[in-house]
Design a protein around this nucleic acid. Sequence first.
DNA 1: CCCTCCCACATTGTCGACAATATGGGGATT
DNA 2: AATCCCCATATTGTCGACAATGTGGGAGGG
Lengths: 229, 229
Amino acid sequence: MSHSESTPVTAADKTFLQLRKNIVEGVISAGSKLSETELSTKYAVSRAVIREAINRLETCRLVERKANIGARVVALTADGLLELYQIRESLEGMAARLAATHMSDEEIAELKDLLTQHFEEVKDGHSYYQEAGDVDFHYRIIIGSKNKQLISLLVDGIYHLVRMYRVQLGMAGPRVTTAFGEHQQIVQAIVNRDPELAEMLMRRHILYSKNNIQSKLQILNPTHKRRTS
Amino acid sequence: MSHSESTPVTAADKTFLQLRKNIVEGVISAGSKLSETELSTKYAVSRAVIREAINRLETCRLVERKANIGARVVALTADGLLELYQIRESLEGMAARLAATHMSDEEIAELKDLLTQHFEEVKDGHSYYQEAGDVDFHYRIIIGSKNKQLISLLVDGIYHLVRMYRVQLGMAGPRVTTAFGEHQQIVQAIVNRDPELAEMLMRRHILYSKNNIQSKLQILNPTHKRRTS
DNA sequence: CCCTCCCACATTGTCGACAATATGGGGATT
DNA sequence: AATCCCCATATTGTCGACAATGTGGGAGGG
């Protein structure tokens, strides 16, 4: 429930964070088995700690466990990524709707600042925007929804999953140039305190990202028959 | 990840199911502490099993754990229930949208049958519809979305939470009579393969439920200032 | 040559004991 | 009397060992 990522205090915490990092960044490849004994020797902790860490990874939906068989990193499917984007479309759309009502004027001002800052960097040709900037933008709107359970769902769970999928399927960051304009529109809707529009724009924004990814996937793997949303 | 609720094979499975049942039905009251030693004696299993069960409860978001302090059943707030309904509105709206495209003709026929069956029971004055029927209806549409991650999110997580909140805050089942008509409309939209309409109707349906609950809560607890969504 | 059954092995599940950390109360000081 | 510090105690975190379960391979029969 802690999306605040406080400093790890327990061995299981540290092991969990390391494992999550390695999984999300692809050091531990998707679909691979997580052997408790193996990991316990590798990380020099007891099996109990490893089990605890694996349980938390399961909470994030990054691994799946079967009784008496073991834990595996989730299998990566193109369909899986598209499913995630459908969930994001729905949930972040709601987040934007709520943010338009619940964000304080101060938060909105900071959001605008963030966007102009990104604009400077994009203008100078920096690619910084690609990953961290986009995540930060969406993150603030999610926080702005003020719905704790929604925040936890997205920040603690879905976002790590999306990152993993993107890394492992070789999807680069989101579309840089066009996405920026969409972000601007969304912020404007929030500034105007227009929940309906904010939601609609956010949903379209994520839908476009999904379509973009989908077309890339079809190029990489053309045997799949198209699965219209 | 298994929304199929297969027969429990491991001791931790059984303990988890018992604990979840007790929590959802209010036998273990909200906000209460889950002492590992106490539970291990009570259920006659080792602490490791209890810890495992508590971890799974945490995965369902039914309990929260703090390092070196322990696990507590989640605190129940009226706001928390409303937050959940916002999430449901968003997620089940998407589920209905997807179901309108992905449900097979057979599944749709079964859904219609379910509704007429409910109609008979409501007509005869049975109150069966109140709980199980409503859940079943929503359940089928969620399954019909064919989005595995969405299904898991709702069935394994959010629905147990909603039930717990409803039981413990003394909310009876959903509004019987009016909800039935809304269900009919939703099914009709799915029959017509109209994703947009199905989503919109589902969202309105859940929003109405939320408003209904909200008004009840205000009667029960009139000191709270209204929190418009 | 292939299929089946059975057994040894590896892995996960469970247990009890020990270590580390929070908590509450009692005593000393002001 | 009030406040602060310190320690006893209870609880959680971690560990290694044992039990139960799944898995693969080899012996035997067809």
